[in-house]
Each structure stands twice: as structure tokens, then as C-alpha cells.
């Protein structure tokens, strides 16, 4: 039986979330940004599991399954978009995709 307090679990999930956030802020490669979003989604799911276990409710695990479904859809659409972007621009740099930008 695991006796790690809930606070430690929340800190662990928060650390993972902030690592994902830092990766999203720093990286300019679309694949890495998508990966960072995955890390953040995963840590949010971890919080759901920890809280659901703490209060003895099955809702946390149900929410994790929904997060899993959303993550799968997001990744498939995102990777299809990445393929299209690479096809058009021959790069994965997000700063290169600036056709909507107002150049004055």
C-alpha cells in the first residue's frame, strides 16, 4: 500500500506540468511543442488519478480515460497538420509559418 501523501503527488504532477510548459515556451519545433502538450495532459491526468484515489471515487479514473481519448485525437490531428506544414514550408519552425502576420 502506497502511503505517499497527496501533497507529494500533487508536487510531482505539478513539476511534470511545469516541465511541459517550459518546453512549450522554449522550443520552436512543432513536434517538440506537441510533445510538451502531451506531457502537460499526462500530468493533469495524474492529478485526476491521485485525487480520485485520495477520495475513494472512481471519477478520477474515468476522467483519465477521457483525457486519453482527447490526447489521441489531438495528436492525430496535430501530426496531420505537421505533415501538411512540412509539405508546404519544408520546415517545422513555427516562426516560419507567418503568412497571417501583418508585415506593415
Amino acid at each position: 500500500m502506497l502511503t505517499v501523501p497527496l501533497k507529494i503527488l500533487l508536487l510531482f504532477a505539478g513539476t511534470l506540468f511545469l516541465l511541459g510548459l517550459a518546453g512549450l515556451l522554449v522550443r520552436r519545433n512543432i513536434i517538440f511543442m506537441l510533445m510538451s502538450i502531451e506531457i502537460m495532459l499526462n500530468s493533469a491526468g495524474l492529478v485526476f488519478i491521485a485525487a480520485g484515489r485520495h477520495w475513494g471515487q472512481p471519477d478520477g479514473q474515468v476522467m483519465f480515460i477521457f483525457i486519453l481519448a482527447v490526447a489521441a485525437v489531438e495528436v492525430s490531428i496535430g501530426l496531420a497538420l505537421i505533415l501538411q506544414v512540412y509539405h508546404h514550408y519544408k520546415t517545422l519552425d513555427v516562426d516560419a509559418i507567418s503568412k497571417l502576420r501583418d508585415h506593415n
Binding site: L2, L9, F12, L46, I49, A50, G52, R53, Q61, F64, I65
Partner: peptide, 10 residues
């Protein structure tokens, strides 16, 4: 970690 949190299926 999830396994240790008694969420084997997850």
C-alpha cells in the same frame, strides 16, 4: 506511478 496508485487498468 499509476500502478502504485492502485489504478492498474489506467
Amino acid at each position: 506511478v499509476l500502478y502504485l496508485l492502485d489504478a492498474q487498468f489506467i
